[in-house]
Amino acid sequence: MIYLDNAATTFPKPESVYIAMDKANREHAVNAGRGSYRAAREANRIITETKQLLRDLIKVDINAAVVLAPSITIALNQIINGLDMRKGSVIYVSPYEHNAVARTVNKVALEKGIVVKEIPIDEQTLAIDLEKMKYEFSKDRPEFVFCTHVSNVTGYILPVQDIFAEAKKYGAITILDSAQSLGLIEIRASVINADIIAFAGHKTLYGPLGIGGFINISGIPLSTFITGGTGSDSLNLKMPDGAETHYEAASSNIVAIYGLYAALKTLNISENRSNEMMITRHLVKELNNIPRIKMFLPNEENHTGIISFIFDGMSSADLGQILDEDFDIAVRTGYHCAPFIHKYLKDESSLGTVRVGIGKFTTMHDVDCLVSALKELANE
């Protein structure tokens, strides 16, 4: 199989991740924080060190709480449901948001009577329109701003630093979805103006499925959304007050955490980014030579290795099935869990886009096979 669905989850993982997870399953899969014996202490040490590696990645100190969760979706649910949103509160979201934000914000808005507004976009370039955004902010002052760093549909790198800097003029709380960026793009918390950064372990960090979380840089108070056992203060029916333990109910997925720990230890952001962009530029050049293909591309300097396109005369679903069954090429098709952006792409007649996700282990041969298959289909 030629795997080109790295925006969904990076695959394969570095060999060190597989080794660490196998070792963890065999030797360390005990309940961290629930016992004073040596194996439990070792599991707890790995959790502590993994959290510190995440802090180091965004250049924050020990005071930034790192909360681990089973996925970034659950982490975003904890954040959105935990924020002090009240009737009439104004929330801004980018038009590139994933349903992990979009559906969760919508649910809370319906329950609490919150106003949700989209950050404006230039419909020609598909870039965030910062000037229109500034006007909207001045008219309806933002209290909370949610923004994905990289679009999982087009690969567009959003100007989150500018968006959040403007939001901070109004005292807004800013939340970054770094699912498609952390580990691929350098993020300095002090520069980006994010109060909370949510992350996915299994995407650009090259860890396994089953681990994600958020980093509460500014110490934003969040009410409890998920409750349960923590291994401490067990006679108390309220969750512990700790900045991290208050949000970490249930047994830790220590096997996945070991995998993330191994991935973070071997992560090379500049190398991953350089390789991804070299292959992306090559693929874009080749796809531009196929007349039946229309790509949705942002500016090359604001782009990662995610390419979406439609194929004239064929639905995205049909094309994806043919690529799979006839060429053993795995791509993603459809609307990619991103409900807002497709009204600007105008891709409903194609049932969404075909999405190519390039990753650390993608080769020139892989994308050349895709191009060859598409050329063959275009000439039929």
Rank of each mutant, 00 (worst) to 15 (best):
I114V: 14
T73I: 12
Q124I: 07
D366A: 02
E97F: 02
D140Y: 14
A262M: 11
K112T: 02
E300T: 02
D347G: 04
E276V: 01
K139L: 04
F309L: 12
D368T: 06
T10G: 03
R86Q: 13
Y37M: 08
I119V: 15
Y92I: 00
A243S: 14
I47V: 14
R332K: 12
I358G: 08
I91S: 05
Y335M: 02
A373M: 01
V150Q: 13
M277K: 15
I257C: 11
Y247I: 03
I157D: 01
S350H: 13
S232N: 13
K294T: 13
L374N: 09
Y92C: 04
K265L: 12
T230F: 00
D195N: 07
G88T: 02
E123N: 10
V101A: 03
G113Q: 06
N6F: 01
K238Q: 03
A127D: 14
H98C: 14
A250I: 00
I80T: 07
D177G: 02
D195R: 01
I257F: 06
A100W: 06
Y135Q: 12
G320Q: 05
R188D: 15
K132Q: 12
L260M: 07
I163L: 06
A200T: 09
K112V: 04
A43H: 14
N272R: 11
E186F: 02
V60G: 03
T10I: 00
